[in-house]
Simulated assay, not measured.
Amino acid sequence: MREKIKKLPSLLLVGHGSSETDQAKKAITDHAETLRAKGHFSDVMTYFLSDGAPLPQRPEGDFFIVPFFMSDGYFSGPRIRQLFGMRHNQMQDERGLVMLCPPVGMLPQMSDLLLKVAREVCEKHSIQEAQADIVIAAHGSSKSPASRQATLLHADALRHTDRFADVREVFLEEEPFVSDWAQKRSEPSRLTIVLGLFAAEGPHSMEDVPKALKEGAVARGVDESEWIYTGPVGLQADMVRLVETSIAQYNEGR
């Protein structure tokens, strides 16, 4: 008698998206396409909370949900559980096991990816790492500590490498603000690499951060060559590996 072949699990990447631009969806849809090509899942789907659309049809079998968020806040946990009727991060029903994995932005490997991006900038511009400052720019919030906690986690990891002259964190919606930092730079002679801790090319990462940096430069009467903004880290091809790591971390904790 032939042994029954076990069905591959399915994967759903959940992101926030944007009501203002479809470009905010591109990073996740591109990563989903890469994951489909690998053939490790029976299906790879995407869902964006900002759309308010019905949930995609869930296939039979085990089902991984990976929040494509940079912090462990309301959207990456309670909101997803609410949508799927989950009380905890795991739910079993007649169709299979549903498993909510850690947000990609909370993985230690995210610190490694930010470090890789910063080092690539230094190499490209022939800058010694010890002569460069690092600033991690994130959303922040006056209502939740989640974004700050995630940003501090990665900033501390980069500080502990002792590779760079200085490492600090700034935010759009809480202190220290991006614009304030840009206006009060203490070492303008050093190049600063501004790393965007954002999931996609949304208004915050592509408009608000550059605008705040420019405002700071204008206030001090300098040009913007003092820093290089790398854009949202969520665009990096290595984010696919972090999705896989999120699933592996969930499996290790089961």
Rank of each mutant, 00 (worst) to 15 (best):
A219W: 01
R168A: 02
S76M: 09
M1R: 15
W181E: 00
V209C: 03
S111G: 11
P108I: 05
L113S: 02
D133W: 00
D112Y: 10
S142R: 15
L83Y: 07
I65A: 13
P145T: 01
N251H: 09
I127F: 14
M91N: 07
S10L: 11
I65C: 13
V194N: 08
S246N: 01
I5N: 14
H154W: 01
A219D: 02
C122M: 10
P67G: 12
F64A: 12
L197H: 12
S142N: 06
V243T: 03
I80T: 06
C122Q: 07
V14Q: 07
I127H: 12
T192P: 04
D30Q: 15
I5E: 15
E207P: 00
A37W: 14
I5P: 13
D223E: 05
L213M: 06
M99K: 15
F48P: 13
P203H: 08
L8T: 11
D112N: 08
E201W: 06
P176W: 05
N251V: 04
I134L: 09
A182Q: 01
A24N: 13
I28D: 12
R2C: 13
L172H: 06
P210A: 04
C122K: 05
R254M: 09
A137P: 05
A248N: 06
P67F: 09
G105F: 03
G52I: 11
C101K: 07
Q236F: 05
L195V: 10
S126I: 05
Q90Y: 10
Y47T: 12
F198S: 04
G96H: 00
V170G: 02
A165E: 06
A157F: 07
G231N: 10
H16V: 15
S142Q: 13
V66R: 07
H88R: 14
V222I: 13
K7S: 10
S18M: 11
E244P: 02
L12T: 05
M206R: 12
F177M: 12
L213E: 03
G196I: 03
T192N: 03
Y250P: 03
T230Y: 07
C101G: 07
S246K: 02
R58K: 15
K211T: 11
R81G: 05
L235H: 04
A137S: 08
G61S: 00
R95P: 03
R81V: 10
E224W: 01
I247Y: 00
L115K: 09
A27P: 06
M70T: 04
D133R: 06
T245K: 02
A130K: 15
S42D: 15
Q23K: 14
P108D: 07
D180W: 10
T192I: 03
E244Q: 08
T161S: 12
R79C: 09
E60W: 05
D22I: 11
L13G: 13
G96C: 05
D162C: 06
K116R: 07
R220W: 00
P176L: 05
E94L: 11
G202S: 07
Q249I: 01
I136T: 03
Q90I: 15
T245A: 01
I65T: 13
E33I: 10
Y74P: 00
Q23D: 14
A118I: 00
K211S: 10
R190W: 01
H40V: 14
